[in-house]
Measured scan of single mutants.
Amino acid sequence: EAHAAIDTFTKYLDIDEDFATVLVEEGFSTLEELAYVPMKELLEIEGLDEPTVEALRERAKNALATIAQ
């Protein structure tokens, strides 16, 4: 499951495998979680700032909209 989540994140969020791995290690496994989890939870991840989190959430929401079509 972790590998599938990493693949999904790299494909749809335009991030590298290392960043995707950090997200999975922090407990995220779906685009929905990244799109809708409280921003505070993402900001608790070391190295993430508000602009990065906002961009990540926007990419996740856009990916979900694209997949739904």
Rank of each mutant, 00 (worst) to 15 (best):
residue 44 E to D: 12
residue 20 A to T: 01
residue 67 I to L: 10
residue 19 F to Q: 08
residue 25 E to C: 09
residue 59 R to P: 00
residue 63 A to G: 07
residue 7 D to N: 09
residue 56 L to S: 01
residue 9 F to S: 01
residue 43 L to G: 05
residue 26 E to N: 15
residue 5 A to Q: 07
residue 31 L to H: 01
residue 63 A to V: 10
residue 56 L to D: 00
residue 37 V to L: 12
residue 27 G to W: 03
residue 24 V to T: 07
residue 62 N to K: 15
residue 55 A to F: 06
residue 43 L to T: 06
residue 59 R to E: 04
residue 41 E to L: 07
residue 43 L to V: 07
residue 48 L to A: 05
residue 36 Y to K: 13
residue 45 I to L: 09
residue 18 D to C: 09
residue 39 M to C: 06
residue 14 D to P: 02
residue 61 K to G: 05
residue 16 D to F: 05
residue 42 L to K: 04
residue 69 Q to M: 05
residue 27 G to H: 03
residue 8 T to F: 11
residue 32 E to H: 10
residue 11 K to V: 05
residue 69 Q to F: 00
residue 6 I to R: 08
residue 52 T to R: 10
residue 38 P to S: 10
residue 54 E to F: 01
residue 53 V to W: 13
residue 18 D to H: 14
residue 51 P to K: 14
residue 54 E to R: 14
residue 10 T to L: 13
residue 1 E to M: 09
residue 49 D to Y: 05
residue 58 E to I: 07
residue 49 D to E: 07
residue 27 G to E: 01
residue 13 L to N: 00
residue 23 L to Y: 00
residue 64 L to W: 02
residue 29 S to I: 12
residue 15 I to N: 00
residue 15 I to L: 07
residue 18 D to N: 12
residue 13 L to M: 04
residue 32 E to D: 08
residue 42 L to Q: 03
residue 29 S to T: 15
residue 35 A to C: 07
residue 12 Y to S: 04
residue 11 K to N: 07
residue 18 D to G: 15
residue 53 V to Y: 07
residue 49 D to R: 05
residue 42 L to G: 04
residue 32 E to V: 09
residue 65 A to M: 08
residue 24 V to K: 05
residue 31 L to I: 09
residue 23 L to P: 00
residue 54 E to M: 05
residue 2 A to M: 15
residue 45 I to P: 02
residue 41 E to A: 09
residue 20 A to H: 01
residue 32 E to F: 07
residue 13 L to R: 00
residue 34 L to C: 02
residue 64 L to D: 01
residue 37 V to A: 15
residue 69 Q to I: 10
residue 65 A to W: 03
residue 56 L to R: 00
residue 6 I to F: 04
residue 54 E to V: 14
residue 11 K to G: 04
residue 4 A to L: 11
residue 2 A to C: 09
residue 24 V to H: 07
residue 38 P to M: 03
residue 36 Y to W: 11
residue 46 E to M: 11
residue 58 E to A: 06
residue 21 T to Q: 12
residue 48 L to Y: 06
residue 14 D to L: 08
residue 33 E to M: 08
residue 46 E to S: 14
residue 50 E to M: 14
residue 59 R to H: 06
residue 9 F to D: 02
residue 20 A to C: 02
residue 31 L to A: 00
residue 17 E to L: 12
residue 47 G to D: 06
residue 4 A to G: 11
residue 15 I to K: 00
residue 10 T to R: 06
residue 13 L to C: 02
residue 1 E to G: 13
residue 9 F to H: 01
residue 52 T to W: 09
residue 9 F to Y: 03
residue 57 R to L: 11
residue 63 A to C: 03
residue 58 E to G: 05
residue 4 A to I: 12
residue 35 A to S: 07
residue 54 E to T: 13
residue 2 A to P: 10
residue 39 M to H: 08
residue 39 M to K: 11
residue 57 R to H: 06
residue 26 E to V: 14
residue 13 L to W: 01
residue 66 T to H: 11
residue 4 A to F: 10
residue 19 F to V: 11
residue 39 M to A: 11
residue 24 V to I: 12
residue 53 V to S: 09
residue 46 E to A: 13
residue 52 T to Q: 10
residue 66 T to I: 14
residue 41 E to T: 13
residue 16 D to R: 04
residue 40 K to H: 14
residue 48 L to K: 02
residue 7 D to C: 09
residue 50 E to V: 15
residue 1 E to S: 13
residue 6 I to H: 04
residue 23 L to H: 00
residue 32 E to Y: 07
residue 47 G to K: 07
residue 64 L to H: 03
residue 59 R to S: 09
residue 7 D to V: 08
residue 59 R to V: 05
residue 67 I to V: 08
residue 33 E to F: 04
residue 46 E to L: 14
residue 30 T to H: 06
residue 38 P to H: 06
residue 19 F to L: 15
residue 66 T to R: 10
